[in-house]
Design a protein around this nucleic acid. Structure first.
Lengths: 222, 222
DNA sequence: GTGGTTTCTCAGAACTCTCTAAGAACTCAT
DNA sequence: ATGAGTTCTTAGAGAGTTCTGAGAAACCAC
């Protein structure tokens, strides 16, 4: 169980030639999973947390635009690049308005696809990457948590990653399975999560992470 | 005096014909300001907070890509759509890697431009199930009741479920049998309901649940 | 290699939640 | 005012969940 720096990408493409080819093409920069129909694609999109989705417009069982619309209706904000053979402006507008963030028509240039995906997944932070945690803050680069009084607490990489994950959506309650997926890309041994929550509470404060009994964990107030 | 709902957009475009035309085109959906060279564009981009920028690639005084790179270097994360006459894939990749979020080549379709800008500025609100309870509210996911003063009271799953059930029809009086059915799919031991009503009143307030003698319970005023 | 750190597993302890049960307090029609 | 019915309150046992610490394994820098 170890870190994979690549971002996770769900590719939904039914073409038996283009699908694996595109997956291969993207595998340098992304951890790619391939789904070959809209139904499966939607299920996989919902069953894990992805950094970005690439969705073909014309898909069996469920249309790409409908897939994206369904995701958006559920409040999933993951960036989506829609891929399609249909090239008219109306198609593009329809796809974008369904909830896609970008739209690329086939045949596309491999370099452009990767560049657009980079643009979609890129996040900007002033100077060093510092996330506010209520009164506290976490510098992701140095992995130092700073208290309002100026105390600085060093975190390990996993501890920092967990705190960052929780901080991405402070309101949300993350299940053990979700955290396990986000931190380790694993599905078994959810007990690790408890242990790291324990570490964080020891290092920062008892209330840094809130337990929602029977559900999971949520960012608390340090 | 009324609030201008439109999003703010800074258009940086030097073409004396295309600039005002595009500004006009976008003015239905955006509050547009036009800058006609890269230097001025960068200054205006930094001197205010914009919802989105549209930047031409070829600009006098400072190139569009350099403008965006400068913004990004300062940690400005505003979405940028780059507009250009140069259409090669290398140009697109260069523009995107400079920090643009989207790239459109001239001549572009007005509808597509607007659709892409909508996609860039769109934000998804996670469908957080928050029910209003008079002055108070209950977040179903975190099971936290928030008072008008900001106090947050954690509920257990059953307490939260009961409050949610009562809140579905605030006017209605629920019999014990109905609540029992809704919460436990049970028919016996209606005494549990009383107990949980008691818990809710303890945690929130005496008046959170109203008793209708001989009938059942109703949502009260916390 | 060696020593130090970090990561992961595990199992018992501690805790929370749920639901029952039973007496006390209340309500209301007579 | 009385009593039958209804509601409130409290305590506690059982099931399940979470916490915690200790040790083994992996990793890393020297």
């Amino acid at each position: 169980m170890s870190f994979d720096q690549r971002l996770s990408l769900l590719l939904v493409e039914d073409d038996p030639a283009l699908g694996p080819l595109t997956a291969e093409l993207l595998s340098d920069d992304f951890r790619v999973e391939l789904a070959t129909d809209g139904q499966t694609g939607l299920r996989r999109a919902l069953s894990a947390t992805w950094d970005v989705l690439v969705v073909d417009r014309g898909l069996p069982l469920r249309d790409g635009a409908s897939l994206v619309a369904a995701l958006r209706a559920k409040g999933v904000a993951t960036p989506v690049l829609m891929l399609t053979a249909l090239g008219t402006t109306e198609d593009k507008i329809f796809g974008l308005d369904a909830g896609a963030n970008d739209y690329l028509t086939k045949p596309f240039d491999a370099g452009e696809l990767v560049a657009r995906l980079r643009a979609l997944t890129r996040t900007y932070r002033a100077a060093s990457m510092v996330l506010p945690l209520g009164e506290w803050e976490l510098d992701a680069a140095t992995r130092l948590v700073t208290s309002p009084y100026g105390d600085r607490i060093p975190l390990t990489e996993t501890e920092s990653a967990m705190l960052r994950t929780l901080a991405t959506e402070p309101q949300r309650v993350f299940t053990r399975a979700e955290l396990l997926q986000a931190l380790f890309h694993a599905e078994d041994t959810p007990g690790v999560i408890d242990t790291y929550v324990h570490y964080l509470r020891n290092k920062i404060s008892k209330t840094a992470v809130r337990t929602v009994h029977g559900v999971g964990y949520q960012l608390g107030e340090p």
